[in-house]
């Protein structure tokens, strides 16, 4: 295999690995979201049952769920670029499988563009938030690192979409590690 070939194979694996790890993180975040909500309900119930005697309630439940939702989905999206799309098979069934695959690759470029614009937007927000020392509203978590994490996730989305595009345009089959 040529150097370029080996390099591209390495890149291909690296991006797949990144998407995979973000996917695992998404699973953890989703369960964490369920956990936070349950803890919120239980602490509230205990508080009411004991007439305020046992106060395990914590602030920021709503905010944690919002952040949890945001990052669960941002982390789940890179893996879903390829397999998680609703496509209306109205005219394309007449194409050859290879033709259809190429078309899929072409549209994946669109997702790469979307991911890049999102990453750039979040990146610009990082410096603005750092300058104004902006924080979240309830838990006062600094916004700069949150925007940085958004930028990273959107960056991985871009790479994952590019990878799908390259593989599909080259006519290679769907990647195995994609969920189904």
């Amino acid at each position: 295999m040529s150097v370029a070939g080996r390099l591209s194979a390495l890149l291909d694996r690296a991006i797949a690995g990144l998407s995979g790890w973000l996917g695992r993180l998404a699973a953890v975040l989703l369960m964490a979201m369920v956990g936070v909500v349950l803890a919120d309900i239980m602490s509230r119930t205990l508080f009411k049952l004991t007439g305020g005697g046992l106060d395990l309630t914590f602030p920021g439940g709503v905010e944690l769920v919002s952040l949890g939702l945001l990052f669960t989905l941002l982390c789940a999206m890179p893996r879903a670029v390829e397999s998680g799309q609703v496509v209306v098979d109205l005219t394309t069934h007449r194409l050859s499988p290879l033709g259809r695959r190429r078309l899929q690759g072409f549209f994946a470029l669109g997702y790469a563009g979307l991911g890049a614009v999102m990453a750039r937007h979040a990146g610009l927000d990082v410096s603005a938030a750092a300058r104004a020392q902006e924080t979240t509203q309830d838990l006062l978590i600094p916004l700069a690192p949150i925007h940085a994490a958004e930028a990273v996730a959107a960056g991985v989305l871009t790479l994952a979409a590019l990878r799908v595009a390259v593989r599909a345009l080259a006519g290679r089959p769907e990647a195995e590690e994609s969920p189904r």
Binding site: T57, P59, V62, T136, Q137, D138
Partner: peptide
Amino acid sequence: TLVVASLLEGLGAQPVAM
């Protein structure tokens, strides 16, 4: 806003941003 949050916290409530 945050100003009102610290006020409510001082009063013993749990403020929720919204």
